[in-house]
Design a protein around this nucleic acid. Structure first.
Length: 884
RNA sequence: GCCGGAGUGGCGAAACUGGCAAACGCGCCGCACUCAAAAUGCGGUGCUCGCAAGGGCCUGCGGGUUCGAGUCCCGCCUCCGGCACCA
């Protein structure tokens, strides 16, 4: 078929639409569990249905689809699903702004985005699509909520929480970024409010431990999770208050070895013992004023570490149990109630913050670690050293002293070793409408009561006024709030908060295993077959949020006896952002590229090719319109080559000179090149299904009947290029997902194909040439299939194949084709390349050495110099080292 | 401050366990086709000295190890990301 005259481009709109239809009609990517066949669960983070896909989506889905299609070709049973993270605030904000119901808005957006995604030609099993706002979805997380409640893994308490004044709702710690709301960037304030929590802190240690057992995860994500969990080892002990034996302040420290240097102690302003410590009314007044002052600070101010530390000295004094000295007690804003015990021992000698505070308040400093020579006078010392001024700890190392100090506390019965985590429980109540209702009621008689399981789901009511003025909209819906107590049948009120949408995304990958199952969250056998996700792909912005929650939730489900896996995602590919003109694509910066435009102008295959070619997936991708042109040009070049050589290419197989013209309707005889992978034949073991190699090797022999016997020098060289490319592309995909270099290898093959085509016109036997051209073209089409599936399907059909490219096995490099008998060896003199020589692959070192020393290009460089040494690296280079 | 990651042509980027730096693509230059342009094809393209043959210099900076360093070691600088009065 000729190029489209008008555009000089191959007719991608027609081709892409047709193949998308063919795949859909044939349910080609629909999967079911096939016990005994190796599975591959390939998952991209599902999108929030904002209404339109953006380039970031194109990038993730192109990556995921490449892997999914590649694994199909390698014989795996591939689960590749798609769905919608459908609850959330934007829907509600749209309702406030435009008066559209969030449900209407959401489902319209889903329709839109589904159409867009289908135009990308991703190999999803659309029969497994889920939307988290569907009651048949969230009913199961309500059930799990109740089970968690029974186990104490979900609990309700009043607490100081992060509050976004703009979103009018509570935020979890993970959803606050540098004091601002992760979604709307408003400054976060603190509120004391009743709410539900998931006890993720119970899993802190396990979540941390498994960070060391996830080799398929990028190190940077694991590091972020470790930091977030924030484990620290130390000691906790009672700090006596002078003259007040009934008051016991517990302090936490990671440096019990420095206890002798404790010259004062500090309580957080909100510390509950502060009230009982105050003696006079006058002091109570000052405390109240200090607390008010601290409370006025915004989160942002509090985060600034360089600002002077405020403190208030209390009348009460404490006793350092180590030195038995009386020391002053302070309230100070640099001590946080939320970490440790909310009280610290201050050791200005070995802690810079304490040092700064001690300076400002004229407090004594005792050094308990010997300073290295020249240590500045005006700094705390946190380095290593020997203990001094520390009574029974003197002379010990820090580590020894830590242990001995803890032993001493234990012996005295006042303290013990203690491990602390920075991780806080996950606050999941949201004072908003568009979320899953919390399945709990409050009865006048029985108090808080969970809904009965048989009454689930607690359906989110449709009729609701959304004002955005604050307060849970559900509280205004009488028909929802007023209910009967599941326990006594009396009057009860429903909880009117909804769950954080991160709860839905914590298990959607499980729902995909059996999306319509109605007797539980997922069908156990299906989950057992598909889980864990083999490859998860998504943006790094979820490094601690979603990825930590999902890990936690999976462990909870395991402990509830519902699931057998410890971790949901075996491997994670954390893809970079899409950048244009030096900034992340965003409407406000005006640098967005609309995927729809792109696909309309160049086709999905080009959009996918470029986004995979421009950068390795983990790096940020610099969008470049010219680069897209280049990708398009490349596909056109292949198209043109195949169609201008179609007669020769198709004649080659049967060895007939007769041309088979016309696209896609070749003769049936072509079937002999087809591999029909029977279900049984496809794959036995993971990674490299055993019967697979044989099958493909045979096929290679078939498809290249004449080329296999390529005897000319040029023919063998070209065939080596073909098979080296197969090897490289396979390696790049398997080894480190460097699709950019895989694609560049195919580009090189296509360049070599053009060179060969020209060079072989004279002097090469026609059958050999034709067979090699066909072998190269088939390899190109196969290798490029997972990247640009439509054009390759079309070309594959044009080459006479009747079955989809993706039912065909991935090619394997033929070792005989790769074998070479001579290699080029570089000759260096003193590390500089001076000549080259050709030697047999199995040439002995001595032989290479002689050849190198005798080389005409090399000799002048040895003139007047002595050869000191000759380094021979077989198959690579010779370095002649000279002297004089 | 702590923890990660990265610095390579005009640009996006390559370089497996130390072995020809800059593959591939973009851009640019030249040529062919064309009345002309577009498209396409072919060739060139790190910097620098030279008419040329050919030489010298190049992977953020300074040292080191090595026959040989983009890659390993030590010390810096810059940028990006995460965490951050976490005791």
């Amino acid at each position: 078929m000729p190029l489209d005259d008008r555009q000089d481009r191959y007719p991608f709109p027609e081709i892409e639409a047709r193949w998308q239809q063919t795949w859909a009609d044939g349910k080609q990517f629909k999967v079911t569990e096939e016990p005994g066949r190796p599975k591959y669960y390939c998952l991209e983070m599902f999108p929030y249905p904002s209404g339109r896909i953006h380039m970031g989506h194109v990038r993730v889905y192109a990556i995921g689809d490449l892997l999914a299609r590649y694994k199909w070709m390698r014989g795996f049973n591939v689960l590749h699903p798609m769905g919608w993270d459908a609850f959330g605030l934007p829907a509600e904000n749209a309702a406030i702004d435009n008066g559209v119901h969030p449900a209407v808005w959401t489902y319209e957006n889903i329709e839109n985005m589904r159409t867009q995604l289908k135009r990308m030609g991703i190999s999803y099993d659309w029969d497994r699509e889920v939307a988290t706002c569907d009651p048949s979805y969230y009913r199961w997380e309500q059930l799990v909520f109740i089970r968690m409640l029974e186990r104490g893994l979900a609990y309700r308490r009043r607490s100081r929480v992060n509050w976004c004044p703009s979103c009018q709702t509570v935020l979890a710690n993970e959803q606050v970024e540098a004091g601002r709301c992760w979604r709307c960037d408003s400054e976060v304030t603190i509120r004391e409010i009743d709410g539900w929590f998931f006890k993720i802190t119970d899993y802190a240690q396990e979540l941390l431990d498994w960070c060391d057992r996830l080799p398929g995860w990028p190190e940077r994500v694991l590091t972020m999770q470790r930091n977030w969990i924030g484990r620290s080892e130390g000691a906790e002990f009672a700090l006596p208050v002078a003259g007040r034996p009934e008051v016991k302040i517990t302090i936490y420290t990671t440096r019990p070895d420095t206890s002798f240097g404790m010259t004062y102690a500090v309580l957080a302003p909100e510390h509950p013992l502060v009230d009982s410590l105050a003696v006079a009314d006058e002091e109570r007044g000052r405390i109240a004023a200090f607390r008010a002052e601290v409370a006025r600070e915004t989160e942002i101010e509090r985060l600034a570490t360089d600002r002077p530390k405020r403190g208030l000295r209390l009348a009460a004094r404490a006793i350092n149990p180590f030195s038995e000295q009386e020391i002053p007690l302070f309230l100070a804003d640099y001590v946080l109630m939320g970490y440790g015990t909310g009280a610290i021992m201050a050791v200005p000698g070995e802690d810079q913050r304490d040092w700064d505070f001690a300076r400002a308040h004229d407090l004594p400093v005792i050094a308990t670690v010997k300073r290295p020579a020249g240590w500045p006078e005006d700094q705390a010392y946190t380095g290593d050293g020997v203990k001094i001024n520390s009574g029974f700890l003197d002379g010990l190392t820090i580590e020894e002293a830590k242990r001995k100090a803890i032993d001493w506390l234990v012996a005295k019965g006042v303290g013990q070793a203690k491990i602390n985590f920075r991780l806080r429980d996950w606050g999941i109540s949201r004072q908003r409408y568009w979320g899953a209702p919390i399945p709990v009621l409050y009865c006048e008689r029985d108090g808080m009561v969970p809904e009965r399981e048989e009454n689930l789901p607690v359906v989110l009511p449709r009729d609701v006024q959304i004002s955005g003025k604050g307060g849970s909209p559900l509280a205004e819906v009488a028909g929802f709030v007023n209910a009967t107590c599941p326990k006594c049948g009396g009057k009860a009120r429903r909880d009117t908060d909804t769950m954080d949408t991160f709860v839905e995304s914590s298990w959607y990958f499980l729902r995909y295993c059996s999306p319509t199952y109605d007797r539980g969250m997922f069908e156990p056998a299906a989950a057992a077959y598909w889980m864990p996700v083999d490859q998860y792909i998504g943006g790094v912005e979820h490094a601690v949020l979603h990825l930590l929650y999902a890990r936690f939730y999976t462990k909870v489900l395991r402990d509830l006896g519902m699931l057998k896996v410890d971790e949901p995602f075996r491997a994670l590919l954390s893809q970079g952002m899409v950048i244009k003109d030096g900034a992340k694509m965003s409407k406000s910066k005006g640098n967005v590229v609309d995927p729809d435009d792109l696909i309309r102008r160049y086709g999905a295959d080009t959009a996918r090719l470029f986004s995979l070619f421009a950068a390795p997936p983990e790096k940020d991708l610099d969008w470049n319109d010219r680069g897209v042109e280049g990708a398009s040009r490349f596909l056109n070049r292949i198209w043109r080559f195949v169609h201008t050589h179609l007669a020769e290419l198709n004649g080659a197989v049967a060895g007939r000179g007769a041309a088979v013209a016309g696209r896609g309707e070749p003769e049936a005889s072509r079937a002999d090149t087809e591999i029909e992978p029977a279900g049984a034949g496809r794959g036995a073991a993971e990674g490299e299904p055993s019967e697979y190699k044989k099958e493909v090797t045979e096929s290679a022999g078939h498809a290249t009947s004449d080329a296999g016997h390529a005897t000319s020098e040029a023919g063998r060289a070209f065939r080596r290029v073909i098979h080296a490319t197969i090897q490289k592309v396979t390696h790049d995909i398997e080894h480190d997902f460097h699709f950019n270099t895989a694609i560049s290898a195919v580009m090189e093959l296509v360049n070599a194909l053009h060179d060969f085509e020209r060079a072989s016109l004279d002097g090469m036997a026609r059958p050999e040439r034709s067979a090699l051209l066909r072998e190269a073209v088939e390899a190109t089409v196969l290798l490029l299939g997972p990247v640009s599936p439509h054009i390759t399907e079309e070309l594959w059909a044009a080459l006479g194949h009747r079955e989809s490219l993706f039912k065909r096995a991935w090619p394997i490099a033929d070792p005989t084709a790769l074998a070479r008998d001579a290699v080029e060896i570089v000759v260096q003199v003193d590390g500089r390349v001076r000549g080259r020589l050709t030697a047999a692959v199995d040439a002995q070192e001595a032989e290479i050495r002689e050849k190198a020393l005798a080389d005409g290009k090399v000799r002048p460089w040895l003139d007047g110099r002595q050869v000191a040494k000759v380094v021979v690296v077989p198959g690579r280079l010779v370095n002649i080292v000279t002297r004089g």
